[in-house]
């Protein structure tokens, strides 16, 4: 209740205290602009963090559940080795399903590199078998040994060597985005502290007169703290709304999951950016309060 009362006093304001400290034009604009710009950047850092999180989860989940068997054999043995591989896979615990990719599917996989109408029959292209694992997964080493015995041209690829760097890169990106958010918060605090110090210096005569007529430090600080908190909140709100609009207008995520087109918010994640204006106000509140009390302690 006490916190709510304090918050209500802060937002409701003290018109007299506001009137006593004259508004300082450029620090007001500087604070609002800085809070707006930082909120704009914070929304993008947040979007990046959430998008990389989603991407890491998706890559991790999709690649973890699937594997590929690649068969490189002379044309005459390809069919026999394919059948042998399928037989091995069908009898291996932990394998849900296995199927040979059709020529059309293989052509589509190679299309980005070789273009359409690829004559698959004329090229020594390995046969691919898509394997879907059960949640427990198979005994990889045992499976590899059995495949080597039954089909010497078959190589089992559980995607680990692809998955690990991708997941690791996505996790690093997420960490970077979170670090950027922290940097933005600290930079906002630093900028607001500078602006508050400038306002306090510009009003040093007012502050000294107020102290001489019996004003307590809290009365003087409140006038500055309230002003900077509201400016940071309003700047943060405008910056956040502008950035949310920009994110909303980004191209929709493509089916292929291209990273840049997937940079946005999904579902209730749209609520996250709305936390930025109040957080901006909280940062401003503490930064201004610390600056004001530090200045006031230097006066008698």
């Amino acid at each position: 209740m006490a916190i709510l009362r304090k918050l209500s006093t802060l937002l409701g304001g003290d018109q007299k205290a506001d009137r006593v400290v004259p508004p300082s034009g450029y620090t007001a604009r500087l604070t609002t602009f800085t809070a707006g710009a930082m909120a704009f950047l914070a929304v993008f850092a947040l979007a990046l963090s959430l998008a990389t999180g989603r991407l890491a989860d998706r890559w991790s989940a999709e690649l973890a559940r699937t594997a590929t068997v690649r068969i490189s054999a002379p044309q005459g043995q390809m069919e026999a080795q394919s059948r042998a591989v399928l037989k091995v896979l069908e009898t291996t615990p932990g394998i849900k399903s296995a199927r040979v990719l059709t020529d059309a599917e293989q052509r589509k996989l190679l299309e980005p590199w070789f273009g359409p109408d690829l004559p698959l029959d004329d090229l020594p292209i390995p046969r691919l078998i898509e394997v879907v694992e059960e949640s427990a997964g198979p005994d990889i080493e045992g499976l590899r040994l059995r495949l080597a015995a039954e089909a010497p041209g078959a190589v089992f690829d559980d995607h680990t060597r692809w998955r690990q760097p991708l997941v690791s890169a996505a996790s690093r990106l997420r960490l970077l985005a979170a670090f950027s958010l922290a940097l933005i918060a600290v930079s906002t605090a630093a900028m607001i502290t500078l602006a508050a110090n400038a306002a306090l210096s510009a009003n040093s005569t007012v502050i000294s007169v107020l102290r001489l007529v019996g004003a307590r430090d809290t009365y003087i600080a409140r006038a500055f703290v309230r002003r900077f908190t509201i400016r940071a909140f309003m700047g943060g709100l405008f910056g956040t709304l502008a950035a949310m609009l920009a994110v909303f207008l980004l191209p929709a995520a493509a089916e292929e999951g291209a990273f840049l087109t997937g940079l946005g918010f999904v579902g209730w994640h749209w609520a996250y950016p709305l936390l930025i204006p109040p957080l901006s106000a909280i940062v401003a509140f503490w930064a201004t309060r610390a600056a004001a009390f530090k200045t006031l302690r230097g006066l008698t």
């Binding site: 102290r211 001489l212 007529v213 019996g214 004003a215 307590r216 430090d217």
Partner: peptide, 16 residues
């Protein structure tokens, strides 16, 4: 304390 100074100054009128 600083608050005591402020309260005491309210009991002293000063013409600068």
């Amino acid at each position: 304390s600083r608050d005591q100074v402020a309260n005491t100054r309210r009991r002293i009128g000063v013409v600068h």
